[in-house]
Design a protein around this nucleic acid. Structure first.
Length: 829
RNA sequence: GCCCUGGUGGCGGAAUCGGUAGACGCGUCGGACUUAAAAUCCGGUUGGAGUUAAAUCCAGUGCCAGUUCAAGUCUGGCCCAGGGCACCA
């Protein structure tokens, strides 16, 4: 065995052998239990960054650990390869997005292989390839048949910079998630998926996800935004055209209904023109025009002073017969509830601000009996008892909610209503580089889905990427015109492509059956491998990808394509990789190129380091000194093996020799290491402590060896056992070094096909215990003791300590607490 | 405003059950080896008091209370940081 550690040489060699021997390929059939370990697949942006390295290393170690523990592990990888950056690069460099994407995938594949990841490359999926997007289109058609995909004209989020619409989930603080450009509203006819049909079950089933962090679950729950309240319909008393009209409102505060003093409709409210008197028409029109011009950010700012104008008409409150005016104000949102709000200034802070500004009347209807408020300076939004509320006076407001709504139901002008904040998922994109939405528009037959046997609807190649202001796909001369599948007449194709999140919301299913060209996946195979046992990825997908995937899984279950309802059993959201306290980014210039690390230190160092300093869920601060430290440690491990190689034999299973040495400290430390490392991995994948335990073990072997001038056979057995076990324990992390060492020591097959070491509970502890002796809870003495001692004997031992005698002399011992094998606490006065 | 997560040395962090606070590493200081350096090895490193040196003592896990023989860990109240949601009626 070479004396020096040359990672670059070893790593290349083994990567090739593993690939040639298909060491990490996964059969579908196996008598072992299955385990599906999955990283969120990458967008092929060009090069791996450290976030990828962290993500894939974590999942890789999990996959390897499970494999060594007897599981048939599925650990695949693929490419989320449709999307705007490819198209932008095409526009900039005149290249084809496909070419750009394929080249990036090739480069990043090389990098992934350099990292030594145990992927089954036979199952690689690439969302931009026709053999994949054919099935994305097919799934869209199934959703369409189920009534879960529909087209409608609506106000949608438009990013001028990206030249496309965005889903609600892709608008962050009024800006585009990808480019940060301010998002505008546009009225367009677009395709939506009915995720709102699943709002309740998406919320409810969060409880089933015991393997997910609360942070992600609450984020999803907030996003779904369930609230319970009532709908009340208020008759209009003076509609200008004499029509009999009513304005429905949604409220979560039916208990305040006697306090209504006006009503607000959103500027986009559908019936607003019919509700405006001729005298007020001009002012209302001007107000609406102004609201249209404002950006979402401006409009939704809570800081902004509220504005509005009266419509001139009035409604009647069926509860008390009061007449109140109608206003329009942009603090009412057209898309939520009914687009109209009943205003109770005394008990809602927004209504209060508005009423103060326009000097609208206020009426207190809820009172805190101990500390009544007249609501002159602020709204009273706490709980209380109803006043000025007719038959409901004296009721607690929590009870009144139900009673008042019930009355509206009985009298026919209201109902109980559950409302969600979640909106349907807009999947149309006015871009080229995506899966074409498989529908055509026939002059006679209207919207027609493309027949399944005609899939895939291929992306045209004859497009001009230099066009501005429209999708490049519209420049194709071959794509647009087609034949109607129903009447055979002329039809035009849908020119929009699908949101890439549609492609990524089912890719994990395809891994179960990646090469199937007859179906999107075989139902049995998908039921066998799914749900994913461990999913690992960034928190930035807490809502977007994870919510969409949950929805698609449930929808496909309802389409009877699979038989489970949650795709990801356990979720680990890994923290960000930081440098100098902030996220690595090109603009900040604080990135570290993985290639350089591979070149200078090797992949094993990179893998070891990225796991070492922080638990996976927390942010990780990159430090060059830390990398250096890990490299030194691997050198130390290598030296330990190479300098002792002659004394190490794989026949360490010479149990007789080991048995004789049961009290050997090293033997015990090895067993403790196996136990500790196994538990740390099993318990939330605490790889940082796993690595400190590697170091402790290595240090202990060095210490033990340093104390021996010569080794007898029993010593050699212990040393062999220690080093071979160390190699196995380190094999999921230092994948190349351990493989090389395994072979140099004469090991058969791959170290990655061995069994994970087991520990002996009796040996996985020190041969004696350190008894802690406390007085009044403070440590005063430590005594080496036999662990077999009884409680009384421990007490005796503690009291016989000279130090303790001295400290307790002249004092009364009130009580003595003995914790077996650990501690004695003497309480004195 | 509501919700989630976190707060421990100079730094990253450790501490299954309430039972030795600071494992392991980084940094740093001192030493060995060397003509010298690198590499490697050994030792110190929470703060304060104390001593020639030690022994030893005191304080200490964001703050304030509480429960307990014993609290980083449990309970109540607060402060700070990060993240999510938010004119959602």
């Amino acid at each position: 065995m070479k004396e020096a550690y040359f990672p670059q040489e070893i790593e290349k060699k083994w990567q090739k052998i593993w690939e040639d021997k298909k060491t990490f390929y996964t059969p579908d059939e196996s008598d072992k239990p299955k385990y599906f370990a999955l990283s969120m697949f990458p967008y092929p942006s060009g090069k791996l960054h450290m976030g990828h390295v962290r993500n894939y290393t974590i999942t890789d170690v999990i996959a390897r650990f499970k494999k060594l523990n007897g599981y048939n592990v599925l650990h695949p990888i693929g490419w989320d390869s449709f999307g705007l950056p490819a198209e932008n690069a095409a526009m900039k460099h005149g290249a084809d997005p496909e070419k750009w994407t394929v080249e990036n995938i090739a480069y990043m594949t090389k990098q992934l292989k350099m990292l030594g990841l145990s992927y089954d490359w036979e199952r690689e999926v690439t969302t931009c390839k026709p053999d994949y997007y054919k099935w994305t289109q097919w799934l869209f058609l199934q959703l369409y048949k189920k009534g879960l995909a529909y087209k409608k004209e609506a106000a949608v989020n438009w990013c001028e910079d990206c030249g496309t619409v965005l889903a609600n989930e892709q608008v962050i603080d009024g800006k585009c998630w990808r480019c940060d450009h301010v998002v505008e509203k546009k009225y367009l006819s677009q395709w939506f998926l009915k995720i709102t049909d699943y709002a309740e079950v998406l919320l409810e089933d969060l409880d089933k996800l015991t393997g997910w962090g609360d942070n992600v679950k609450t984020m999803q729950a907030n996003w779904i935004g369930k609230s319970q309240g009532a709908i009340f319909r208020f008759p209009v008393v003076d509609a200008p055209n004499g029509e009999k009209m009513e304005v429905p409102v949604y409220t979560t505060r039916p208990d305040t209904v006697y306090g209504i003093t006006y009503l607000v409709v959103a500027p986009e409210y559908s019936d607003i023109e019919k509700l405006t008197t001729s005298e007020n028409k001009d002012a209302v029109e001007a107000y609406r025009a102004n609201a249209r011009k404002m950006s979402e950010i401006e409009r939704l700012s809570t800081e902004r002073v509220k504005t509005g104008v009266p419509l001139g008409t009035h409604c009647k409150n069926p509860f008390n017969g009061e007449i109140f005016p109608l206003w329009t104000a942009d603090y009412a949102l057209a898309e939520y509830g009914t687009g109209a709000v009943m205003a109770v200034p005394t008990h809602d802070t927004r209504d209060f601000d508005f009423a103060k500004k326009y000097k609208l009347p206020m009426k207190v209807v809820i009172q805190n009996q101990e500390n009544p408020s007249n609501c002159e300076n602020e709204a009273y939004t706490e709980e209380g008892v109803l006043v000025n509320s007719g038959e409901f006076n004296g009721l607690k407001n929590t009870e009144a909610k139900k009673a008042i709504t019930q009355k509206s139901v009985d009298e026919g002008f209201g109902e109980f209503k559950t409302q969600y904040r979640l909106r349907d998922w807009l999947i149309s994109r006015q871009r080229y580089w995506g899966a074409p939405i498989p529908v055509v528009y026939c002059d006679k037959c209207g919207i027609q889905p493309v027949p399944e046997e005609q899939l895939p609807v291929l992306l045209p190649k004859d497009v001009d990427f230099s066009v501005v202001g429209k999708s490049p796909i519209t420049t194709s001369k071959t794509f647009k015109d087609t034949i109607c599948p129903v009447c055979g007449g002329h039809a035009v194709r849908e020119m929009d492509t699908m949101d890439t999140f549609m492609c990524s919301s089912w890719y994990y299913l395809r891994y179960a059956d990646a090469k199937n060209d007859k179906e999107c996946f075989n139902r049995e195979k998908v039921n066998h491998w799914l749900p994913v046992d461990q999913y690992v990825g960034g928190i930035e997908h807490a809502i977007l990808h994870l919510l969409y995937s949950r929805f698609i899984t449930k929808a496909l279950r309802d389409c009877e394509l699979l038989d489970f309802d949650e795709p990801f059993k356990n979720l680990l959201t890994q923290g960000m990789v930081l440098k100098d306290g902030s996220k690595m980014s090109k603009s900040k210039g604080n990135t570290v190129d993985p290639d350089e690390i591979f070149e200078n230190y090797g992949a094993d160092t990179a893998r070891l380091f990225i796991l070492s300093d922080s638990p996976p869920a927390r942010d990780f601060d990159w430090s060059d000194a830390g990398v250096e430290g890990c490299y030194k440690f691997l050198n130390r491990v290598w030296r330990l093996i190479s300098t002792n190689a002659d004394d190490i034999s794989l026949c360490y299973t010479n149990l007789a020799a080991l048995k004789k040495k049961e009290n050997d400290d090293l033997l015990r430390i090895v067993h403790m290491s196996i136990k500790g490392i196994t538990n740390d991995i099993s318990n939330d994948f605490q790889f940082n402590t796993v690595i400190s335990k590697y170091r402790e073990l290595v240090n202990a072997i060095y210490d033990w060896r340093g104390k021996k001038t010569s080794l007898d056979d029993e010593d050699k057995a212990i040393l062999s056992f220690a080093i071979i076990t160390m190699i196995k324990l380190m094999s999921p992390v230092a994948v190349h070094l351990t493989e090389e060492a395994w072979h140099e020591l004469g090991g058969e097959g791959s170290v990655h096909d061995q069994k994970w070491p087991e520990w002996d509970e009796n040996l996985a502890k020190a041969s004696s215990i350190t008894l802690i002796v406390q007085i009044n809870g403070k440590v005063k003495d430590k005594i080496e003791a036999d662990e077999a001692l009884s409680q009384d004997e421990l007490k005796e031992l503690a009291l016989s300590s000279e130090k303790i005698k001295e400290l307790t002399s002249g004092k009364t011992i009130v009580k003595t607490i003995v914790v077996p094998k650990k501690l004695v606490n003497i309480v004195v006065k």
